[in-house]
Design a binder for these strands. Structure first.
Lengths: 348, 348
DNA sequence: CGTAGACATGACTGCGCAATCATACAGGAC
DNA sequence: GTCCTGTATGATTGCGCAGTCATGTCTACG
């Protein structure tokens, strides 16, 4: 932490003792002021803050962590990709973490790296984070991973052994169900599903929501096509589906795949939404501007991360207080122009 | 850092002394082994590693940082958004940071927050990072920000006072120039530009590249339309441009705006690319699948971050060694179907 | 008016590790 | 054999802060 100034450079960074000396108090009192502890007179507080300001003093986090046993940092395990969903989660978490006065450490897992989550977690724990957020985990068949700090799992059921596990379910399942029901209510006999990779919990959630909706409406359950989230995989799936004239509605597990799928339909001479309706998932920024504008489902990233982190921090700071149940977030289906009633009769 | 076990819980986490005791050596020797320092016999090394393994020992990073003055962590200042560009930079950085054996701390700036970069930097410096990466900075008119660790600036010229400043230019300007030239070479008399917000260096870079290309070809320089990166702003700009029949080619500063712009053209009854050609920037995942598939420019995120970080780490660890010049990254223009020669005569 | 409590401050200590210095023993040069 | 250099290890110390306890001052109240 000591920044070794090269000869002739700026003075060394000040310590709390320096502040104390300048303010005419003890080092401990400086610590009191900076930590907002009680029993400091207004006068002394003022002097200390002024002195700190004058010296440009910043507390040494390593020393704080060592002395107090807390780093005031939260680690995030995220997918090492720029996919809209994971990236949005991460940014939501950053905002929320900062709001509660913590700092953020990030470890990315790499798709296909076995033990990726476990090693990312190990790296974070080694850094001494006070809590961990796991964003949209994928199933690695690792079984129970054991962690000695509280864990917040976003968008998936917990499979971690930890002092406390908090979950913030997005209700992706409910959202998927709403998307499917939207299509059924337009009059489609059934709805096909272009699923995400089933190693992802969020992909399984969406599939389950789709299935529920079909069952509730007594609709047939057509075979599932699985993609890998990419528009390319959506395109491939779309070519396959285009050869089946009975398909009139598809719910894709994300917008990228939906867009690829639509392109395949157009190339096959089928119009969207006249011949086939498509619903996506995520509401990526361009969803409203592609052709046709995409009906999709929007996830409340900010609200979910904020709520989840508030819980996590409470668990970290007051492990014994009872947790309030997480409030459900509102479902938001954004209806645009990629969905319509089915054509009068299936295309032969 | 001390994880206080609640009564009846697992034993406290082991310290290096515990490892030392088990291995029958001194604490310092454990430190030597774990830091790969010389002058340790193979036998002792083995015993220490075994003992550490047996106890599940992990070094306390706070203590290491305090004792050594280095955190072995790199801080990143990034835009708090899920925009494709910033998110891709961040993930590229994560991979690169891990490859060089450091860990990552993230601070996001908030658009519109005055002093955002400065406060994000302050937060990171307070955490004691050994180096800082600033990704696609925006101009806050803050003037010189002073930092006491080496800085890597991605995609922009440096405006920081720091012991060492490294830049990894993406060559966005060159890429923008290539995009514009592509249109000119198709026969367009000139190319309009839908710029990004000019507070962003990367937006200014792209504008400059566009301007250079026009000058080099002796083409007229039409007025610039400025968007805010969003598809919505591209759409708005597109409506404006659509009323001008002389516009036959547009270079948009990112793909989202290009997609919004294309949608506005279609709604105005102009065909892309027959009536008007559009080039984007970024090659977002869906760019190949929108209608028409988007001609765009791809940034070499991974190569640039990897090279830049290698330099940054070298500067951190060996401040006195001369830096090799950064190699230029290859320009990649991805030609798809949104560009074509201009229509025979301007639409009246 | 003496004492219990609230308030305000400081002295001292220790967090877990790496840096520094000291020590000990090899083997080679002379 | 003595001296040296290179190798291998340990003892001690200190990084900069917060925790603990001691101490002092001021009010309130019987």
């Amino acid at each position: 932490m000591t920044r070794l100034a090269r000869p002739g450079e700026s003075p060394p960074t000040p310590r709390s003792v320096d502040v104390a000396r300048l303010a005419g108090v003890s080092q401990k009192t400086v610590s009191r002021v900076l930590n907002d502890e009680p029993y400091v007179s207004a006068d002394v507080r003022r002097r200390v803050l002024d002195a700190a300001e004058e010296l440009g003093y910043r507390r040494n986090q390593a020393a704080r962590a060592l002395a107090s046993g807390r780093t005031r940092s939260i680690g995030v395990v995220t997918l090492g990709s720029a996919l809209y969903g994971p990236a949005s989660w991460l940014m939501g978490i950053e905002r929320a973490v900062r709001e509660v006065g913590y700092t953020l450490r990030v470890a990315a897992t790499i798709e296909g790296d076995p033990g990726g989550i476990a090693s990312a977690l190990a790296s974070l724990l080694g850094q001494g984070v006070d809590g961990v957020v796991i964003s949209e985990p994928i199933d690695e068949g690792v079984g129970l991973i054991s962690v000695d700090v509280p864990v917040l799992v976003l968008g998936a059921p917990p499979t971690f052994a930890a002092p406390q596990v908090v979950t913030a379910r997005v209700g992706a399942g409910r959202l998927a169900r709403a998307a499917t029901e939207h299509l059924l209510e337009l009059g489609h006999a059934t709805v096909h599903h272009l699923a995400g990779p089933q190693r992802w919990y969020s992909a399984r959630d969406r599939l389950a929501g789709w299935r529920e909706a079909l069952r509730a409406h007594g609709a047939d359950e057509p075979p599932v096509v699985e993609g890998d989230w990419s528009a390319a995989s959506g395109y491939a799936a779309g070519r396959e589906l285009a050869s089946d004239g009975t398909v009139t509605a598809v719910f894709a597990a994300n917008d990228d795949m939906a867009i690829g799928l639509i392109r395949a339909q157009l190339e096959a001479g089928r119009r969207v939404p006249e011949d086939i309706s498509v619903v996506g998932f995520d509401d990526i920024p361009v969803a409203a501007y592609v052709t046709p504008p995409l009906t999709t489902v929007r996830q409340p990233f900010d609200e979910v991360t904020r709520q989840g982190l508030a819980l996590l921090v409470q668990v970290i700071e007051k492990p014994d207080v009872e947790l309030p149940p997480a409030a459900d977030q509102p479902v938001e289906l954004v209806v645009r122009a990629s969905t319509a009633p089915p054509p009068p009769r299936p295309i032969p």
